[in-house]
């Protein structure tokens, strides 16, 4: 891990909606994202997490404060293409991100836009499809694929740009459990095997628990930031902003409420079982 790839400094964002009201969506968010890390951003609807995501590759520009991507100011129009090819973005609905009617043509879209030579595009497309495990579908029509497969094609379409960081804005929200598992597996591999920085925006606790670092947002503020097992220990704090905790933490927390002396930092099912068995045998 070497230095932050994304730096947000006192980021503020407001806009005027149709009724003339000016809600403050982001209110002084400061956040450094280290290269190679896996960060989950957790928050309720309206917490500002998607707005934050859109600031990370200059889809939205801050109304106050600054965002730097690999040292480039996102407000700098000259650097727009380098910013967007450094930080790739995957959205909720795979149907609305796929441009072409053949899988490999779609994956080629971003490198084509960047003016990469043909043979190099071919290489990148094959590589990106292999990374998401979709090589055998290269010549298929996207509308015949399952939701999870489509979302993996969308991820391939982004990694074909060779971004150093990928931001995923609730990529599993429209998928069935199988599709969710496929996509989460792909994201984890992207981070561990290829060293890509991953920022996962989500409202699923168990997805957030997989990250190295967890940022919790509420009402435009960052209210907690740290390793998931530390953040989830503040059960009351999370409940106060309308979030739940993973089932394992919930169980241990309720036991503590009932007067049992169990630690709260067991996240996986195995860890939790171990903690319980230790407690019962002690």
């Amino acid at each position: 891990m070497s230095g932050p790839i994304i730096e947000a400094q006192d980021l503020r964002f407001t806009y005027t909606n149709a009724e003339g009201v000016t809600p403050i969506v982001l209110d002084g968010v400061s956040l450094d994202i280290e290269e190679g890390s896996f960060v989950a951003v957790l928050g309720h609807n309206g917490s500002g997490k998607s707005t934050l995501a859109k600031h990370l590759n200059a889809i939205l520009l801050p109304t106050g404060g600054k965002v730097y991507v690999a040292g480039m100011d996102t407000a700098d129009q000259q650097k727009l293409l380098s910013i967007r090819s450094t930080v790739g973005m995957v959205f909720q609905n795979p149907d609305n991100q796929i441009v072409a009617n053949v899988v490999e043509e779609d994956v080629a879209f971003a490198p084509e836009n960047l003016g990469v030579p043909s043979e190099e595009i071919r290489r990148r497309v094959d590589e990106a499809l292999a990374m998401v495990g979709m090589s055998q579908y290269a010549t298929h029509a996207p509308h015949l694929l399952s939701g999870g497969q489509k979302q993996r094609v969308a991820i391939a379409g982004v990694i074909a740009m060779r971004p150093r960081c990928v931001v995923l804005d609730e990529p599993t929200a429209m998928l069935d459990p199988i599709g969710r598992k496929e996509v989460l597996g792909t994201i984890a591999r992207l981070n561990r095997e290829y060293g890509t920085t991953v920022v996962l925006i989500t409202h699923h606790m168990d997805e957030a628990a997989q990250a190295d670092r967890l940022v919790v947002m509420s009402k435009g503020h960052v209210i907690a930031d740290g390793p998931p097992r530390t953040v989830f220990q503040d059960v009351e704090g999370l409940k106060a902003v309308g979030l739940t905790v993973p089932e394992t933490t919930q169980l241990l927390w309720q036991l503590r409420q009932a007067g049992c002396d169990v630690p709260l930092d067991a996240l996986s099912d195995e860890e939790c079982a171990q903690v319980l068995s230790d407690f019962l045998t002690a």
Binding site: R84, V99, A110, V116
Partner: peptide, 25 residues
Amino acid sequence: RADELAVAMECRCYHGGEGRTRMRQ
């Protein structure tokens, strides 16, 4: 859909036909 697609295309560095190459020539 059109709105979301436009944002997704911008995220993938689409900026019109200028300087664009093709995979299949």
